[in-house]
Computed example of a mutant assay.
Amino acid sequence: MILTIHINRFVQTLRGFVKQTKHVEFPEMLDLAPFCSSTAISLPNMLPHQKKVLYRLYGVVQHSGTIEGGHYTAFVKVRPANTSERNMSDFFSTPLSRVEDISRFQWELQQQSSNKAQSTEVEDDSVNQPQRWFHVSDSVVSEVTEEKVLKAQAYLLFYERVV
């Protein structure tokens, strides 16, 4: 399940629309259990005695500029453990990427994933999977830290359910 949160950055004042630039804090892991009814928590998709309804951040969209004009960029989390099951061509758009870029990208992710698996033991649940964040701005993609993501001036937040 996916949870999308929209943060209203544009508000109307007596002078017209104004962009709100104040940082809004958001967590990497979000527990919605305090906001769920006992009926929702007892649904079949919940494990017996499960006390938390966890969602993990996997995408952030931010806007830079003013209300008159600007630019949207995104932070996206990629988990190497899941990449072998996906068609990696979905992550690339032509003509910016060549076919050989896709196979090289897959190979690099598999190498990094196997190196991490050899150097550290990671539990086999989705809460502890290795995570890498990337900042995407048009055709420019660069790796960033989770700290930088959590400092973003978020406009949209995308969370996925952790089971």
Rank of each mutant, 00 (worst) to 15 (best):
R15I: 13
K19W: 06
L54N: 06
T73I: 05
V122F: 02
E121P: 02
L47M: 13
V99E: 10
A74C: 12
R56S: 04
R132M: 10
F75C: 02
I67R: 09
K51R: 11
M88R: 10
S142E: 15
P44I: 11
M88I: 08
Q131N: 04
P44K: 12
S126C: 06
R98W: 10
Q62V: 03
V136A: 06
Q131D: 03
I102Y: 04
V127K: 03
S93E: 11
M46H: 09
F92M: 10
A152Q: 03
C36V: 04
P95E: 12
R9V: 03
R132I: 07
K148Q: 14
L3P: 00
Y159A: 00
Q112H: 15
Q62F: 04
S103T: 15
L96Y: 15
V53F: 01
E108L: 13
L150K: 05
L57K: 00
R86V: 11
N128L: 03
E146W: 01
S93R: 14
V144R: 08
T120P: 00
Q50V: 07
H49M: 13
L32I: 02
Q118C: 07
L30V: 05
N87M: 13
V78G: 01
T4G: 06
T145G: 07
T120G: 02
A40Y: 10
G65N: 03
T73W: 02
V140P: 00
P80M: 05
K77P: 00
Q106R: 12
I7F: 00
P34R: 09
Q110R: 15
A152I: 01
E160Q: 14
I7K: 00
W107N: 11
T21H: 04
H135Y: 09
N87P: 01
G16I: 09
S137V: 10
Y55I: 02
Y55V: 01
K148T: 11
T145C: 03
L43Q: 15
R132H: 08
G70R: 11
Q111L: 12
K52Y: 08
G70Y: 08
Q50S: 11
V11M: 03
L57A: 00
Q111I: 12
S42D: 11
Q131S: 07
V163N: 07
E100I: 14
T120I: 11
V140Y: 02
A117Q: 13
Y72N: 05
E123D: 13
Q110M: 09
K22N: 15
L32V: 02
A81N: 12
D125P: 00
M29R: 08
S139G: 05
Q111V: 12
L54I: 14
F158N: 05
F35R: 09
E143R: 12
V127Y: 09
Y58T: 06
L150C: 06
